[in-house]
Design a protein around this nucleic acid. Structure first.
Lengths: 216, 216
DNA sequence: CGGCGATACTAACAAGCGTTAGTTTTAAAG
DNA sequence: CTTTAAAACTAACGCTTGTTAGTATCGCCG
């Protein structure tokens, strides 16, 4: 059987979509089962409870995001400076939230449906991203590259800026992921005090000239 | 009877708190009634349905935000430049989301519980804020003050940055609203291409020196 | 005092919820 | 074939949901 076609994967796929679109509380087991093409009771052959479906999806989304960020950071030279790290981090974050908006919704909006224990686990895992970005900012400030106004607020502001992409990006829209990432990478650089006009910016993918994007 | 002590206002107060904390779907009429100190059926002497409570709160929150922004903009000189307008707008937005985090949660997270008609109304009202900020950015770019990378993305990024304050601000925290606003105003200025180090920034309330905040 | 409207309470309704028990079907292995 | 375990189905349980009807209580106005 081809991967992604098993019943478990169908439940994952449908649950992800419905939780993201309608919210965890507003999604019923019968609705998921109906979309999968089975009866509600049959869901319990694959998941012990509704919350376990959410927990499974939460873990999957966090793993996915973790992998994407790690992969992006691994493309850097070992002696890459803070600016390069920041660009890679923002690029990976924006790309994930654009291309995986359903998974992003789980992590950013639906986690309240988790049990207290699972919620704590997920939040602490999510907190590692903030710590990672915080280190980049401190490193950049220490080397004199950045001029961060406030570490904690800058970290949250940059992350939230990246997350917001998931609320408006559409695959059939006018802007490609590469173009969008280029803009947000520039915004992030500005936020940490880099002047993206004076010095050439280094972004992971091809960057666009300023006018080229703003005139769309 | 003192204002804010009537049953209607008690329902508003309790509903706002519970919707913000637990979400609209996860909040039951019986839970609201219990917190108010009446029976569930008595709620229907004041509101026709659960959705109407949410709609009432949504309208109230949007009115409040509208007023705060209008007031902030009215303090400006009639010939104020784009930078001053941007600072006033961001300051009002951040201040609202810090001091009214429950109302912010309604507008930014719980509106999915509204009926289709009410949802459309609220979204279109909320869209006027984006339009207002968009005009400021265009005005600033036209006059040469700003160097906006991309209008639409910058508008969303700045707004989302302001909104994110509601997720972490605590009245008993270390930072005052004035200090927080000062940081976000500087971040916004950087995002539109202003160099907040070279030229003195103009912010509505007292601004803090960079080191004063980042070293907390 | 009498009446009346606002607001509270009680009790229940129909519908829907997550979940379970018991049974039948399916499909691969022996 | 027969066996067996996975996975589907049916049917229901117990509970909660938003909401309503009918009734009682409260306080104000004449």
């Amino acid at each position: 059987m081809m991967p992604g076609a098993s019943t478990v994967d169908a439940i994952r796929r449908v649950g992800l979509e419905m939780f993201a679109r309608d919210g965890y509380e507003a999604t019923t087991m019968r609705a998921i089962a109906g979309e999968v093409g089975i009866q509600a009771g049959s869901l319990y052959n694959h998941f012990a409870s509704k919350e376990e479906i959410l927990w499974d999806l939460t873990q999957g989304a966090l793993m996915e995001l973790t992998s994407r960020i790690r992969e992006s950071m691994e493309t850097l030279a070992v002696d890459a400076d803070a600016q390069a790290r920041l660009c890679a981090f923002v690029d990976a974050h924006v790309r994930f939230h654009a291309l995986n908006s359903d998974q992003a919704s789980i992590v950013n909006r639906q986690m309240a449906g988790l049990s207290a224990m699972h919620y704590r686990q997920a939040v602490s895992l999510r907190a590692t991203f903030e710590a990672q970005l915080g280190e980049i900012l401190q490193e950049g400030n220490a080397s004199g590259e950045f001029h961060v106004i406030d570490f904690r607020m800058s970290v949250i502001a940059i992350l939230q800026m990246c997350i917001s992409v998931s609320t408006w990006y559409r695959a059939d829209g006018k802007l490609s992921p590469n173009e969008i990432c280029a803009v947000y990478v520039q915004l992030a650089q500005r936020m940490v005090g880099l002047d993206t006009r004076a010095s050439m910016t280094r972004v992971p993918m091809k960057s666009l000239p300023m006018k080229g994007v703003s005139e769309r």
